[in-house]
Design a protein around this nucleic acid. Sequence first.
DNA 1: TTCTGTAGATTGGTCGTACCAATAGGTGGA
DNA 2: TCCACCTATTGGTACGACCAATCTACAGAA
Lengths: 249, 249
Amino acid sequence: MTDSILFSPVPVGRAGEEVALQLEAAILSEKIMPGESLPSERELQAQFGTGRGVIREAIRALKQKGLIEIRKGAKGGAYVKKIEVANVSESLGLFLKQNRVETSDLAEFRESIDRTITMLAITRATAEQKQKLVAATEKLMTFLEEAEPDLNRLGELDRELNIMLARMTANPIFEWIMCAMQLGFSSHDYALYEDAEFRRNTIINWCTTAGHIAAGDLLQALSSIGAHYILLRQCVAKRQTAAVKDQAV
Amino acid sequence: MTDSILFSPVPVGRAGEEVALQLEAAILSEKIMPGESLPSERELQAQFGTGRGVIREAIRALKQKGLIEIRKGAKGGAYVKKIEVANVSESLGLFLKQNRVETSDLAEFRESIDRTITMLAITRATAEQKQKLVAATEKLMTFLEEAEPDLNRLGELDRELNIMLARMTANPIFEWIMCAMQLGFSSHDYALYEDAEFRRNTIINWCTTAGHIAAGDLLQALSSIGAHYILLRQCVAKRQTAAVKDQAV
DNA sequence: TTCTGTAGATTGGTCGTACCAATAGGTGGA
DNA sequence: TCCACCTATTGGTACGACCAATCTACAGAA
């Protein structure tokens, strides 16, 4: 909440855009800090000298960007919040969905990122973090015996492992990118866990990878990462030939 | 971040959200193809059985996501379009702005990406592409002599070079990520071009890098990339000490 | 005194109507 | 034939009313 006369009245035309821009500027320049709230819609309506609908649409746009969170009732209003990775992920996910990204391109990108992450993680992560990683992979092992495991749960664990590893780089950007990819690409690479044989190999490979990372053995860790993507490519190839067969029938 | 965000609770009494979801689903499932338009606001109002304000807010949200483009007048309306990288970039940029990313972290990430891109570009780019890259760096050279060059233009050329190089990987994901970073981080690394000496070194280094890439000399190209980031880090360090001095005074 | 429940005030959410502004496409005149 | 104008369509804005959720404060009960 701020004192009055911080917003200038807007003439005409695309008033909504203008209002949204001014509010966004106020938020980004931290005139309104996270946790505080914008004035109420009716107050903004007065300050901008416009109709309430315009204010509402502007606020809607900001909400969509993830800049604010809206609460009803007394003491309600538009509260400024910190943007979450989920917003970036959603945006990225939508984009990728429309652009029909090839699984091979995706795998290539992820592999390159994974290699970098592995290098950084090995040199920077604490012993405790490495231990946790190993423990997490051991949780994966429990799925090894099951004939029909919960694929959602498996995917969940896989995501957690990737993000945990990314966090070990001590560079938040890798963590964010990994989060965004995990959320944005979820449709692509569950494939590895659907087929029983690939599932088995993938799980075992995760464990050896974690072991090498914990042991600080960079070259072997990178080999394991490579093996993971070899598995992925084989799996994709197998599925494609299967799909072709289906079409033929 | 570790918590799983699979489903978000749907607050009751928000028709706008519901409408937006249905419209988005219709677009993503390609019931409405890019180029076509949604029904007019008044028609949607009738179909959904709600007020026009609700429809407008839903449409506003979709516009913000980059899913549609709005035209006024007869034959106007909400036209479905392909999402542009700019949307992802904006989202990413906002996120990074709020999260105060360290320049060092950013440099680290960019360096790792640049190295991967360089490797892929060398092995995959056509001779023509490589030639174009060299030609583009030569354009940079014209700025070498000027005492007070147009920094915006320089930054523009730098961005184009980076994106051109990313495109040479023949993997669109690298191009998108590069675009998103260029747009999202613009504030960070103009630094290199502001100081006359760093500017000179950076420009020369770009040229040698392009030369090595064109020659297919991977190791030397990677060395040049490394040199670029050494320059960047030196530049940042210099600025920080300068800032500290300013504070002391 | 302390707890509790109700009334009021604040604020977002929705509806409806009316009017303005931009645009495409047709119509009529030079 | 071509250009100016008119008109229908559609998004943009304004105003006013009411509902629903939420917090606050105060009065009454334990």
